[in-house]
Amino acid sequence: MIKLRNIDRYIDKRLQRNFILKGIDLDIAEGDFVSIMGPSGAGKSTLLNIIGFLDDANEGEYYFLDEPVHGLNEKQKSEYHRSYIGFVFQAYHLIDELTVYENIEMPLLYRKVKGSQRKSMVADMLDRFNIVAKKDLFPNQLSGGQQQLVGVARALIGSPKLILADEPTGNLHSDQSKEIMETFKKLNKEDGVTIIQVTHSDEMATYGDRIINLQDGAVTENNPYEEE
């Protein structure tokens, strides 16, 4: 599904080039549940953003579903991004002024889904995450765990093939974290959604099938658990 070849991402300062990512080669198959780990500043988020079309690599090749992303124009990219990818953030990033219902509905507005269809899709999602009762509340009226559930529901509403989660449990208690991770696992196993998460926590990383370690912008260990 995802094929990265020799990806470089750098920032040019006056006299030197600061590499954030250097020579990344990575293959992720459809249906994988991958955890990216590594110390702060290793380039985990940048890698996730490049995979998610939010950032561009300076060098290298990126194939998404066998399509060369480095050859797509902006419009095609945003089309891919919109149709195949859902994002979950550490800080939830819900829109404070919108209710739970409206937050979940929001991505559908940019996909030109009809009103009646939107309604039933959002209702399904509320049902699935047991938050029907909360649909008219605003994000600040929810606990962190509940907010992140809404965040996951929003990421899933467009039925993406790939979920990108940037430290989804970073702000949560362990109970809440487990709930989110169980949800991801279920999505991965039952619905075949490919999931890539960035995490600091070994415990959370183990929910995935595969761990990728990043250090100073390079992959140091690929699938350490499988090798053991």
Binding site: S78, H81, R82, F87, H93, I95, E97, Y110, G158
Partner: peptide, 16 residues
């Protein structure tokens, strides 16, 4: 600005 960022991540175009 945050809301704009979120909406863009979830598919909003510049026109939107």
């Amino acid at each position: 600005i945050k809301e704009i960022g979120i909406r863009k991540v979830f598919g909003a175009s510049i026109k939107n």
